[in-house]
Design a protein around this nucleic acid. Structure first.
Lengths: 229, 229
DNA sequence: AAAAGTTAGTGTCACGGTGACACTAAGTGC
DNA sequence: GCACTTAGTGTCACCGTGACACTAACTTTT
């Protein structure tokens, strides 16, 4: 008997928490049936139709949360038979993706009784093995932040270096030196000054940058596709 | 309609080629049915039963090639609908693993008309999208060599630094400085001198080492398991 | 209008990892 | 004892990076 195939996605965005501080958050859906009824779970659904895994993940993400990701990458496939934790339960293999959405986009997400953003670093007990999955996605995100440009997935078209640095500080959970951060980002060639500045604040106006769209957000070797920008 | 689920594995080993030079090789099986009849393909099979994905990969590897891997890790899941390249063909989603086996173990592998070792860097056209899969596995292997200890998966219990360096040189495809290699490997603490040496050659006898078995071959974050040693 | 405050952006120094390369050590074979 | 071969050590220059002090530009306050 073949196991069932599902696709789920760990979606990250930076959003203000109840104190107004930007926090790394994940949208979760409340389970409305057994098993694990009432617990929070990753958005997902069965794999059907004739689309690629990437397309299926993007579609499912749109349908369950209304979001369009700025970055989307396959994370891992989970298939331990005890996942469903019911003796008679049928086995499910989940192909899990992870995604980044900008703060602006995250605000457009459907939020209801059954869809809610929760802080990534203090989640309750989730359904199935979804705590482990989120932990792994977090690990991967933090690792990738250091050797790729995925941080831009959190930001809009134009951003200041302070905003980019804030992304790194929140995700990594530690402060970064202003000067050193600027140096390394500029050296990597990941950003392009737009020539414009943010005026109005009571300090020197910061310059605005864009990321280089001709380069992929992450080097995935042979799996790199033009859609990965 | 749910797609079919299969597990395949890219298996790497260092083996002497026709000229006696150690080469990075992959065991492939010849397809005995359509589609892609007659082409070489990665060893694999359907996912059945009640085992975890890791267990299924290990079992399948054993059944198709007779090999027991020293390292085994999930690579990626492939599910493009055009993979099977037949209009009426049913869709297959493959969860692909990659594995390392020692040269000694590789010699014990079943080799027949339909199972053959081929050099990883000059493969013919394989079945399905297996060329892409092998390319990606190679990319991952090379990347992991630089920030983990997976190289030990190619070697036996005891090895000299020259043997370890040879693994790196063959996989990366470029010569490495003897002294610098020793320095970095020793600094990483990955190896432990056994106190023994290889005598008999007409030169200074090289010291033998083992790798530290208390540490995992690769840091996989939350996915690290005791079985990863 | 000058001073204070705030954040943007620059400059400098020390240290650790690494590539290049020359050297010494310890065996065998002639 | 000398040549040869591979093992293993030592040294130097360079570069990326953390720590930290500085200057720049703007608003607000006095």
């Amino acid at each position: 008997m073949q196991p069932n195939l599902a696709i789920s996605t760990v979606i990250f965005a930076l959003r203000p928490d109840e104190n107004g501080r930007n926090t790394l958050m994940i949208p979760l859906v409340k389970r409305i049936r057994e098993p694990h009824l009432g617990k929070w779970a990753l958005p997902g659904g069965p794999l059907v139709g004739n689309e690629s895994l990437d397309e299926a993940a993007a579609r499912n993400l749109r349908e369950t949360t209304g979001l369009t990701p700025r970055y989307l990458e396959q994370l891992y496939s989970f298939g331990a038979p005890e996942r469903s934790a019911g003796a008679a339960a049928e086995r499910v293999v989940s192909i899990v993706y992870w995604a980044l959405v900008g703060t602006d986009e995250a605000d457009r997400a459907v939020e209801s009784e059954n869809v809610h953003w929760l802080a990534a670093d203090c989640l309750p007990e989730l359904a199935f093995d979804h705590n482990l999955i989120v932990e792994y996605a977090l690990w991967r995100l933090r690792a990738k932040l250091n050797y790729s440009r995925v941080a831009h997935g959190f930001l809009g078209e134009e951003f200041t270096l302070a905003q980019l640095r804030e992304v790194y500080e929140i995700v990594l959970g530690r402060p970064l030196d202003k000067g050193n951060f600027r140096r390394s980002v500029e050296a990597s060639g990941a950003i392009i000054p737009t020539g414009r500045v943010v005026a109005g604040a009571s300090n020197r106006p910061p310059a605005l940058y864009t990321y280089d769209k001709t380069r992929s957000l992450a080097d995935r070797g042979p799996l790199n596709k033009p859609s990965d920008y």
